[in-house]
Every structure is written in structure tokens, then in C-alpha cells.
């Protein structure tokens, strides 16, 4: 194991390691975070949901947006896959259809950071189904 010889060493090491535990720390206050669910049933995966999930995680990490990204089963919008449900604290969930990885980046920029809707992506009229 590499030796830690100074406070600076420790800080460097801590910073490198902290991201590993970020996910767990988020769990401590899920209510105040934006919840993102990516539909990952066969239909979703076939149309690229995995890459969409990666993109949302990476892009929101880059922008330091506090989000919890999980996957979920088929939301019933197979025609609009990949679909992503976003719930902001204290708001009703909104489901976005046809989210490609490129669109995912836009989703992060526009809807997660700001509060804008996305061009060409229609929020699906949707009632939250408690799983």
C-alpha cells in the first residue's frame, strides 16, 4: 500500500476515494435529491437505455448536480424507449420519451440544471405507479 506522508497526501487520497462513497452519502438524504429512473426492461436496453443511464450519471456528476439515478422496469411506453422518469423534490414526476445518449446530456443541462423542457422530446402524460 502506498504510504501517506503528509496532510496533502491524505487530502489527495481522500479526494480520489470520495467519489466511491458519494452514492452511499446520497442515500442519507434522498428526499432532497432529484430522482432519475431509467426504464431498463428489454425494450429499453435494446434501444440504448444503458448508455443513457451512464450518460446521465456521468454528466450530472460533472456538473455536481445531486441526483439519484436508478433503473426501473418497463414503464409501459415501449414505443417511446428509452424512457426516463425525473422527479424533482416536491414535484410530480415527469417522464421523457425517446431519450438517446445525446438527448440525455441535453436533459441534464436543460431539465435537471434549469427547468426547461427539451425540444423534440414530449413528456409523456403519466401517473406515477408506485412499485
Amino acid at each position: 500500500m502506498e504510504k501517506i506522508k503528509s496532510l496533502a497526501d491524505l487530502k489527495k487520497k481522500r479526494e480520489a476515494l470520495q467519489s466511491n462513497l458519494k452514492l452511499r452519502e446520497q442515500g442519507e438524504n434522498t428526499e432532497s435529491l432529484i430522482q432519475v429512473k431509467v426504464a431498463m426492461a428489454t425494450c429499453g436496453i435494446a434501444s440504448g437505455a444503458k448508455q443513457v443511464m451512464e450518460t446521465i450519471i456521468n454528466e450530472s456528476n460533472k456538473r455536481h448536480i445531486p441526483v439519484v439515478v436508478t433503473q426501473t422496469g418497463c414503464m409501459g411506453y415501449c414505443y417511446a424507449e428509452p424512457t426516463v422518469e425525473v422527479t424533482k423534490p416536491g414535484q410530480d414526476p415527469v417522464v421523457f420519451g425517446y431519450i438517446t445518449p445525446q438527448k440525455a446530456e441535453e436533459l441534464v443541462d436543460k431539465y435537471l440544471v434549469g427547468n426547461e423542457m427539451l425540444d423534440g422530446v414530449i413528456p409523456v402524460n403519466y401517473e406515477k405507479v408506485e412499485q
Partner: peptide, 23 residues
């Protein structure tokens, strides 16, 4: 919260930072 057998997880939770600052 952390894996007690992995010092890295303790360090990620500010472990040994108190000792460092005291020194």
C-alpha cells in the same frame, strides 16, 4: 456505512484527517 476492513473507505469519510490536523 463503510466496509470496516477497508481503510480507504474510512479515509473517504474524512478518516485520519483529525489526526493530520492535530499534528
Amino acid at each position: 456505512f463503510i466496509d470496516p476492513e477497508n481503510i480507504n473507505e474510512y479515509i473517504a469519510r474524512d478518516g485520519y484527517a483529525a489526526l493530520a490536523s492535530v499534528l
